[in-house]
Design a binder for these strands. Structure first.
Lengths: 204, 204
DNA sequence: TGATTAATATGCGGGATGGTATATAAAAGA
DNA sequence: TCTTTTATATACCATCCCGCATATTAATCA
């Protein structure tokens, strides 16, 4: 994620013709399609249409379809991790942090640019995992990162026995995942919000 | 599932040439492929290879690819619901029932015939949902059934306030889902079992 | 300005895909 | 035995797939 500025921060462009599109924006458009349709159901034509770029341009910038998909996953992950880091860093109780974090997740899961499609990684990535070592290990990595981030949050804001803490951490991650699944299955925002409210007392 | 006997229970076979294969067995073989690869990555040739049947036979027996997929989902669902009904009906504490239920789930998720692929519905079905109304509504139906079955289990075996009960029911379903996701992401059986053990005290 | 380098636009090609049409084989009914 | 009905086997079709080869355009460097 070295280059997340909107107008490129002078990436010391070399000799040839300069790139005429924004890589991050293209990635974001591609992610939307991958998110909605999944890896296999997404064709290069779909990606070409979504980004406004030709297949050779995509190829030159991102590599083959799977590399493109992984790049899209990485972009989404970076965003999610930023949200989590905020939740950890922000003041307020554990309950406040969790509520804010879930609220942001619901916004993306139920009404994101791809529609009501849950989390791209927990749905399409997980589904694809057995077909691709690269995807499987990336999904495992994200899960590990999520577990650790939640663990940090609890380490900072939860006061209680270690066993209970571990239990609550696991349930907090599971709650995020159920929101993703249920959103993609058609659950509306209010339903998801009421799940969070029902479950929160048990997580703090 | 009117016909789950091995040798057909005389399905009043009509005039023409009798079917030379076991429909349930073919469905089961197909489900294994769909489970591992997901809907889109599974080709009719894959299904043909797995079942030993030709494409026209599959077509005649099950309809098009999506109908075949839905039939496979239904078969798996029936199995899962049977396990859940057992857990509800069996004597023993809530903790006993949950432990047995999760144990059966882990066996399927981590070491089923498709390998470590989680739950076919919660992974491939969920991923496919936005591309197919039929799949989405079926997944929603299964989720609803799961919620209700768990609710029945708690209604019978949990003694406590209604709000707490509802909270624990939701967490119990979420736990099942996290097992599915983590199995498909590569988590081994012991890891999944330790999640269940860590979480169980909070679910009862 | 001319040479060099890189990013586009166009179009193709080998192969896999889902689905079906036709022909053959095997059972039941008369 | 002969007709009818259904299942299987073979082969095919139109379409779409991913990836790339080629030619053109636009920028930098000398």
């Amino acid at each position: 994620m070295r280059n997340s500025m909107k107008s490129e921060s002078q990436p010391k462009r070399g000799r040839g013709r300069p790139r005429a599109f924004d890589v991050e924006a293209a990635l974001s458009s591609a992610a939307t399609v991958f998110h909605a349709k999944g890896f296999d159901a997404t064709s290069l034509d779909d990606l070409s249409d979504a980004t406004g770029l030709t297949r050779p341009s995509l190829y030159a910038a991102f590599g083959d379809k799977e590399a493109f998909y992984l790049a899209a996953l990485r972009q989404v992950t970076a965003d999610m991790e930023a949200h989590l880091a905020e939740a950890v860093a922000a003041p307020g109780t554990l309950e406040d942090s969790l509520r804010r974090f879930y609220s942001a997740a619901i916004a993306r899961y139920a009404e994101g640019p791809a529609g009501a499609c849950g989390c791209i990684i927990m749905t399409t990535g997980v589904a694809r995992a057995p077909n691709s070592e690269a995807v499987q290990s990336y999904v495992a990595l994200v899960l590990k990162g999520l577990d650790e981030a939640i663990s940090q949050l609890y380490a900072k804001k939860y006061k209680g026995a270690a066993a209970e803490r571990k239990s609550k951490e696991l349930l907090a991650v599971s709650t995020l995942q159920t929101l993703s699944i249920r959103a993609r299955a058609g659950a509306q925002r209010p339903a998801l919000e009421s799940i969070v409210e029902a479950v929160l007392p048990a997580l703090v």
